[in-house]
Design a protein around this nucleic acid. Sequence first.
DNA 1: TCTTGAATTGAACGAGCGTTCAGATAAGGT
DNA 2: ACCTTATCTGAACGCTCGTTCAATTCAAGA
Lengths: 193, 193
Amino acid sequence: MARKQGSHAGTTGPKVRDAALRLFARHGFAAVSMRQIAAEVGVQAGALYLYTPDKQTLLFELMTDHLRDLLEDWQPPGGGPVAELEDFARHHIRYHLDRPDLVFIAYMELRNLTPENFAAVERLRGAYEARLEAVLRSGVADGKFDVPDVKLATMGLIAMLTGVTTWFKDGGRLSRVDVEDIYWGMVRKAVSA
Amino acid sequence: MARKQGSHAGTTGPKVRDAALRLFARHGFAAVSMRQIAAEVGVQAGALYLYTPDKQTLLFELMTDHLRDLLEDWQPPGGGPVAELEDFARHHIRYHLDRPDLVFIAYMELRNLTPENFAAVERLRGAYEARLEAVLRSGVADGKFDVPDVKLATMGLIAMLTGVTTWFKDGGRLSRVDVEDIYWGMVRKAVSA
DNA sequence: TCTTGAATTGAACGAGCGTTCAGATAAGGT
DNA sequence: ACCTTATCTGAACGCTCGTTCAATTCAAGA
């Protein structure tokens, strides 16, 4: 009854995060117990506290790491507003289809964050939205796009693109590239001058 | 310590549902206890079981009543695909802005339903989506719309429109009608031939 | 006014919760 | 081979959970 064979912080730590991610996404933060996470990892509940100060921080760090990844994943590539908007749309869809659990959690469990943690997550999300907003604004400025309200268009487009995670299944009627193409077509037309 | 003054099933019943709705939306189904709901209503926890067989059914009935309302709220008004699409978009936005808590719950708490209850809710949601799908399909048939995939366009448009609940605040920069107009403009262009 | 039944209390049930910690064991540098 | 230290166990803490039920009181029809 003590340290286990093969135990190593470098392997257990990520396993804790993976298990928490999967379980939070499937059942919701509040519905998942530390003992369930521990069972998934193969340790006792007490051992989790070597890797996180508490349950709330576990959630918070999953969210912020995800949003930081998302921000790093896309920088405006240049080439003008239309090319940048296409690049954004395709990257957004790819990133979201690759990490459905993280996306789900980052949208759904905001209310389980403390006010400070919530503010930090909202700041990161705002930074991402500002990227798209800047592309739209520059496209409006040189007459490539026509939208009555850039902020609203930003929110509308992100909602539409993110929604792909709610229905897309690999091996279905449409491939990922098909989906990218079709969404990009709708985005392009929705903001076209 | 027993029956309270002014007690009446006709008043307590709705109060239970209202309190559950508000609390579920704010904190999540799993994070809300029957005792919290009871406190909000002004009764003891045991009394709730006169109005619902259990906590899960309370959630399920909130969802199904909402979706049935949504289905009743909009019938194709005729006048051709373009007019019908506009009517759908405007109704969808209005309905969702009027019931943010119900909308939130119906999207977020699906994973807390039993498989049977989940299937029933999905059936209702599918019926609603089929309404929009039919409008798009008829518009494509007579050349008014051009979308590469009607099903995907349906999901994309509903996601975009529903997303309005995540950011709209009354008294902000844009009125509800402004928002309706702008979203309708984007929808129209996104599916335009 | 009396009686009947609907509405509610308050206590209790067993179970599970997040978190802490002393003690035990394996890993890894010397 | 030894020793230190990182890793983990298992028990325990006080608390809350959903749900049940006998007892009690109010409302309302006769």
